[in-house]
Simulated assay, not measured.
Amino acid sequence: MSKAEPRRRLRVLCESFPIRGTFRISRGAKTEARVVVAEIDDGGVVGRGECVPYARYGESVEQVAADIAALADAVAAGLDRAGLRTALPPGAARNALDCALWDLEAKLTGVPLWQLADLEAAPGPLTTCFTLSIDRPEIMADSARANCGTPLLKLKLAGDGLDLERVRAVRDNAPAARLVVDANEGWSQEDLRSLPARLADLGVEMIEQPLPAGADDALLGLASPLPFGADESAHGLDSLDGLRGKYRVVNIKLDKTGGLTEALAMKCAAEAAGLEVMVGCMVATSLAMAPAVYVAQGARYVDLDGPLLLARDRAPGLRFQGTTLYPPDPALWG
């Protein structure tokens, strides 16, 4: 009797990592990163993927964990990435499983991830944004001063009448830094009319998601000295057509696309459509950032600073030198 093939086993973990201080955006604040990890064990070889359920998209840690666990039998039967795409919609649950399947394949075959993904070359180091969360202008000035050597700062804004003061405070205290700003859907129509030209005068390069996703038709044909970037308005491949005429940059996040598979496809499609690419993240550990490093190669903006915002990352983690991010070691992922 021939020996049975090893049965793949799925394990789902819910974990929490403390954030350094408090991370604030226009929708609220948090002090911990709650993540869900999918582990697929194939004869002792384990592939992992991490996701961040996001309430903005109707997700919770509990539901995402349950959605992943519900596919245990399918995983055991050999679920692949193509099958996963029909088993789950884009979102956090599919991201964790998709990345776990990539990781498992790389470890089982010994083939570098970049070759499995048909990329042109092995990944190189990247310069990531460093994010300053919303606070009073004087507090953001202190944060900018503490990070004045950072090449690229991303400022969270709120649409509460203080945004221009916030940006001016950061610019005064980090005069050499490149700046991008992110309103996280928090601006009003008046902010949209009055702020872009003033932000351009302060050296801001791009404005991310100024209006709520459902209200961004107001960007159609709008004359602005700065490009707008789509985040909450951009999810998977099927969201790209809705960005035409509104945005010139698209923020690709694996937790929105549903993993590395669709993120790579979305990057190609976005570039073919004439959009510049930003590769972003939720606040999460190095395990969540690692697959995004492959998507971020050659991107106009890289925003993979999640581990830098944590008080404690997982070990082993990604190697950072300041805000220079190095490709993951296979011991972490890939």
Rank of each mutant, 00 (worst) to 15 (best):
M1N: 08
R9L: 14
R9M: 13
P18E: 04
T22R: 11
R24G: 01
I25C: 09
T31K: 10
R34I: 01
R34E: 13
A38R: 11
I40S: 04
D42Y: 14
V46H: 05
V46Y: 06
E50W: 01
C51M: 00
V52L: 07
Y57K: 08
A65S: 11
A72M: 03
D73T: 10
A76E: 15
A77L: 05
A77Y: 00
R81Y: 07
G83Y: 04
A93T: 08
W102P: 07
G110E: 14
V111D: 01
P112H: 10
Q115T: 11
A117E: 03
P125D: 13
P125T: 08
F130W: 12
F130M: 12
L132K: 11
I139H: 14
M140G: 05
S143G: 06
R145E: 11
L152Q: 13
K156M: 14
K156L: 13
L157V: 12
E165W: 00
E165D: 15
E165A: 15
V167I: 13
V167P: 10
V167H: 04
V167L: 07
R168W: 00
A169L: 06
D191T: 02
R193H: 13
P196L: 10
A197I: 05
R198D: 04
G203K: 10
D217F: 09
D217K: 05
A218H: 08
P227G: 12
S233R: 03
D238K: 07
K246I: 02
V250C: 09
K253A: 10
L254P: 00
T257F: 00
T257A: 05
T261E: 02
T261Y: 00
A270F: 07
A270P: 03
A270V: 04
E271T: 07
L275G: 02
E276W: 10
G280T: 03
A284S: 14
T285Y: 12
S286F: 13
Y294T: 00
A296Y: 01
Q297F: 06
R300M: 10
V302S: 00
R314D: 08
Q321V: 11
T324I: 12
L332G: 05
